[in-house]
Design a protein around this nucleic acid. Structure first.
Lengths: 151, 151
DNA sequence: GGCTCCAAGTTGAAAGTGCAACTAACTAGT
DNA sequence: ACTAGTTAGTTGCACTTTCAACTTGGAGCC
């Protein structure tokens, strides 16, 4: 079958996508790294934990919620544990499971870091767009995250 | 000054953004890696080179065009050079400059890889959206790539 | 020419990530 | 109870990316 190439315009949007996401990623990581010595993915982990009951989430759930491989999460959590930001606990009802718990130190860090991070998200993303544009972006991203439906 | 937190809805879009970009990145990388043992960023480098006159671009320009640090590009190009995909040449008019040139082997690889990649971009992005949505996405991404204007 | 400053590119080490192999524990079928 | 298959999580190694330090060459100024 002949390849359905992208049109000129589509190529332009696609390239913009690559550059835009790279730029944003870069900006947010830099802000978090300089202000809190933490990466965006670590920050996301702190957020997920802070929102959970008991500030506790199982490793596999946590991995899924931030779209990391289990291996990657293991490494990242180990580093964060060394810094005292989180702790591991055995899981009551499943002998294989490990719960990841946010420590007071981790919560404090999140607390202190959040304002600067939110400000950066505004500066580099939200404030650049109209409400409608942001809404469409969100919508579009939900579709992309869901991925091609395997029917 | 009080932090301007995100609204519930904005948080939702923001989270969708994080998940969506991660999912797409993952999908495209996987496709390229299994089909051509190449990463998305290496693919992008091949594309930029293939489009340039003489299939040649200076290292610093190349780095800027794919939003990589100079250091990162140096390492990546070294790896690609080892595989025979690109070559380095001294720059005529600037003793410091290095030109990166696409080799026939590199061009062939790109040629063979492009259809599968484009197909993946369609499957995981373009075909999931209406034309209008994609247009808005592109527009939005151009703004994000441009970043906050420092006035 | 001889300064100083900046830009281009590389280097090596440290940190992050992916992959495959591994252990341990749950599940199901018999 | 036993076995096979599956899921949770970790580990070690290879590979990738970042960061700071370094080398080299150009630009401007006196």
């Amino acid at each position: 079958m002949a390849t359905r190439w992208l049109t000129q315009e589509q190529q332009r949007w696609w390239r913009a996508y690559l550059l835009g996401t790279a730029a944003l990623q870069e900006a947010l990581n830099r802000q978090l790294e300089t202000d809190a010595e933490i990466s965006l993915s670590e920050y996301e982990i702190l957020v997920r934990l802070s929102e959970a009951p008991q500030r506790t989430v199982r490793m596999s759930e946590l991995a899924a919620s931030v779209m990391h491989s289990r291996s990657r999460l293991t490494h990242t959590v180990s580093r964060m544990e060394r810094r005292g930001l989180v702790e591991r606990q055995a899981c009551e009802d499943d002998g294989r499971g490990i719960n990841c718990v946010l420590t007071p130190i981790g919560f404090d860090l999140l607390d202190r870091t959040a304002p600067g991070h939110v400000e950066a998200v505004r500066t580099h993303l939200v404030d650049l767009l109209t409400d409608e544009e942001f809404r469409v972006l969100g919508h579009v991203m939900e579709k992309i995250a869901a991925g091609p439906q395997a029917d």
